[in-house]
Write a protein that binds this DNA or RNA. Structure first.
Length: 669
DNA sequence: CTAGGGTTAG
């Protein structure tokens, strides 16, 4: 009905309007623009074709509508066939190419830019956007320098500065920022945000306090979120309260509340989370989809799945993130069936939905389901690949993981830091220095040398491959090592027979040690024969000064330590009196020591216990057989060594070598 | 008609 009426009006307008009816043309141009913005190319095109008189603006609006709808060929045809063009038309065509975020399109944009008869400030800004999006900072920088000084307005400078910040090129960003003659609120806010995103909260706050323009909601939001994302929840909350006092408290930006709720979820702030949720409800902000999604996410992270479900059901405008947040909530609780039900129910799914579901199956070890899901996905991005690879790795299939990684690279999907972290663990597991070094080269190429999780994985990979000095070199370059870094390095020293250095590093710890730290230092003592030190660490751990409970692994390390030193009876006594149930690793340590010191009774005891726990254990079976048939108690027998050359392990190792032998080629970012 | 900040899920 409405459409017919419009057509009627339109028809009358066409018949009554003369060639010079400019207001009608303007009206149609606006409608084409509107159709383009809502993605209705068909209506835009229909109107365009019916217009007897078209202006430059008409063509420009139409080409933009086509481009937004993905029809680049038709957009270009409109541009090429325009009877006359102005700067805006050229800019629009360049913008259309730039928005494709693709190298060849940016090149085409650049050709147009070079050929245009006249340029305005916007031409430079848009072209620079293209280079920035393509991470071509050389060209972007050159173009910035080539931009006439009077045209280097905040608009233009902010684009380049923002690009530098996004790619972690802080110094270049600062250079642009400080060189700007005029800075607006976007310039300041972007720098504050950029510092925060690069972990420099102190510098961000200095700028935040130093700004000479009025802060707006973006500025506040960046700073509050910056505090929270960098682990300073209380400072963030304080600043939020300060904002409420300083600015008009009548309305509140949903974005800032969203940021806080997300942080409540990730730092497990149950009380604050509930309070802020209540506050958002009172202010009527809960209709905001972003905010609603963050509520679902927060309760999911708390494990309060019913609250999450309630927030989901209450949300008026659900989008794909709403669904994904709740699916993720079920997955996090291990409720994979419920997650799958929701996954099947969702009418719109994106790669996140599929990946969440994949990690759900992975958490249950259902590797075939993971692969089935992965194969059913239409697009595989870096995270999807990483989820699959990680699922395969968790099942211990290193060679297969390497195979998938090579596939990923061949498909030209750029690995992220978590992919590389995973793969470095594979290289450690495979004991393949060659693979590890190639991955290290990829890390450098992709500028991920400063990523903490990558650095930690590198330390672990190198030390497991015997290259402990290389591991140490990387460890020393970590700007803010966390407990995982220390654990990797301590264990690395230990397994390479450098017990003193392990002990030394432990004494320099700036973090409370955890279970892994103690396991590392105990193993280090065992390897280096530091019996007294080992005893001391073990006692200090048990004295609960650090709040760490000794588990069976720690006892295994102690049995190993005592056993290697020949204190077999003390080791056996430790097993007898340990408060946790000894697992096969504990008995294995005793078996190894008993073998080394030719204590037949204890070896047989240990082997028997292992076989009770693991009837298929080859080492124990071999030991029992060996003792029964061959060994007559001579010292120095090397049966344990021959078994330790675990054949299955070797096979996997060589399998991995073969798969990645065509060196890994990654395109530079 | 063409241009620049923040927030949610893997």
């Amino acid at each position: 009905m409405i459409v017919n009426f419009r057509l009627l009006v339109l028809r009358r307008s066409f018949s009554t309007s003369g060639a010079g009816d400019r207001s009608f043309v303007v009206h149609c141009n606006q409608r084409i623009t509107r159709y383009g913005r809502i993605g209705n190319v068909v209506e835009a095109e229909r109107l365009f074709n019916r217009m007897p008189e078209k202006s430059i603006v008409t063509h420009t609006a139409m080409l933009t509508a086509y481009a937004e709808g993905g029809h680049m060929d038709r957009a270009r045809k409109v541009f090429d066939e325009m009877p006359r063009r102005n700067v805006a038309a050229w800019n629009a065509m360049i913008t259309a190419y730039v928005r494709r975020r693709n190298i060849s399109d940016v090149e085409e944009a650049h050709r147009l830019f070079l050929n245009m008869p006249e340029r305005n400030p916007l031409s430079y800004t848009v072209m620079m956007m293209g280079f920035v999006d393509a991470s071509n900072f050389d060209e972007a920088g050159t173009l910035y320098v080539a931009t006439p000084v009077e045209w280097r307005d905040p608009f233009c400078s902010n684009v380049l500065m923002k690009g530098y910040l996004k790619s972690g090129r802080l110094e270049e960003a600062v250079r642009i920022f400080e060189g700007m003659k005029e800075k607006n609120v976007v310039s300041w806010s972007s720098m504050v945000d950029g510092y925060c995103k690069n972990g420099k909260v102190t510098e961000a706050r200095e700028l935040f306090d130093a700004m000479n323009v009025v802060r707006n909601e973006f500025t506040w939001c960046s700073m509050v979120d910056g505090y929270m994302k960098n682990g300073f929840f209380d400072d963030g909350l304080l600043l939020f309260l300060q904002m409420r006092k300083e600015t008009s408290a009548t309305k509140l930006e949903p974005a800032i509340v969203t940021a806080i709720l997300e942080s409540c979820g990730s730092t497990f702030r149950l009380k604050e989370g509930r309070q802020i949720h209540g506050c958002a409800l009172r202010l009527g902000l809960d209709r905001d989809t972003y905010l609603g999604n963050s509520i679902i996410g927060m309760y999911s992270k708390f494990g309060w799945i019913r609250e999450a479900r309630k927030a989901f059901d209450a949300l008026g405008n659900k989008d794909v993130v709403s669904w994904n947040s709740l699916i993720s909530g079920y997955v996090q609780l291990g409720m994979v069936d419920e997650a799958q039900q929701l996954f099947d129910e969702a009418e719109t799914k994106d790669s996140v939905s599929w990946t969440v579901m994949l990690t759900g199956f992975a958490s249950k070890g259902l590797i075939d389901e993971c692969i089935r899901l992965f194969d059913a996905m239409t697009e595989h991005d870096d995270v999807a690949w990483t989820a699959l690879i990680s699922a395969i790795l968790n099942r211990g299939h290193y060679g297969e993981a390497v195979h998938r990684f090579v596939d990923m690279i061949r498909k030209e999907v750029v690995p992220n830091s978590s992919t590389l972290s995973c793969m470095l663990c594979a290289a450690a597991g495979l004991v393949s220095l060659r693979l590890g070094q190639q991955l290290h080269a990829v890390v450098c190429k992709l500028r991920m040398e400063s990523d903490l999780s990558v650095q930690n994985s590198l330390v672990s990979m190198y030390s497991k491959n015997g290259a402990v000095d290389e591991a140490r070199r990387i460890f020393l370059r970590i700007s803010a090592p966390n407990i995982v870094s220390y654990n990797a390095m301590i264990a690395g020293f230990g397994r390479n027979g450098r017990g003193e250095e392990a002990v030394d590093l432990f004494s320099q710890l700036r973090h409370p040690p955890n279970e892994v730290t103690f396991l590392g230092v105990l193993s280090a003592c065992a390897h280096a024969g530091l019996v007294e030190e080992g005893r001391r660490y073990f006692e200090s751990m048990k004295s609960s000064a650090f709040g760490v409970e000794a588990n069976a692994d720690h006892y295994a390390a102690m049995v190993d330590l005592l056993g290697k030193a020949g204190l077999l009876e003390e080791a056996a006594e430790l097993i007898r009196t340990m408060p946790v149930e000894p697992h096969s690793g504990v008995w294995g340590a005793l078996l190894g020591a008993a073998g080394m010191h030719s204590n037949r009774d204890l070896a047989e005891l240990a082997a028997a216990r292992i076989l009770e726990l693991e009837p298929d254990n080859a080492v124990a079976a071999f030991a029992v057989k060996r003792y029964r048939d061959v060994m007559k108690g001579q010292p120095g027998c090397s049966w344990i060594d021959s078994v330790e050359n675990r054949t299955s392990f070797r096979r996997q190792h060589t399998e991995g070598e073969r798969v990645y032998s065509n060196s890994i080629q990654v395109k530079e970012k």
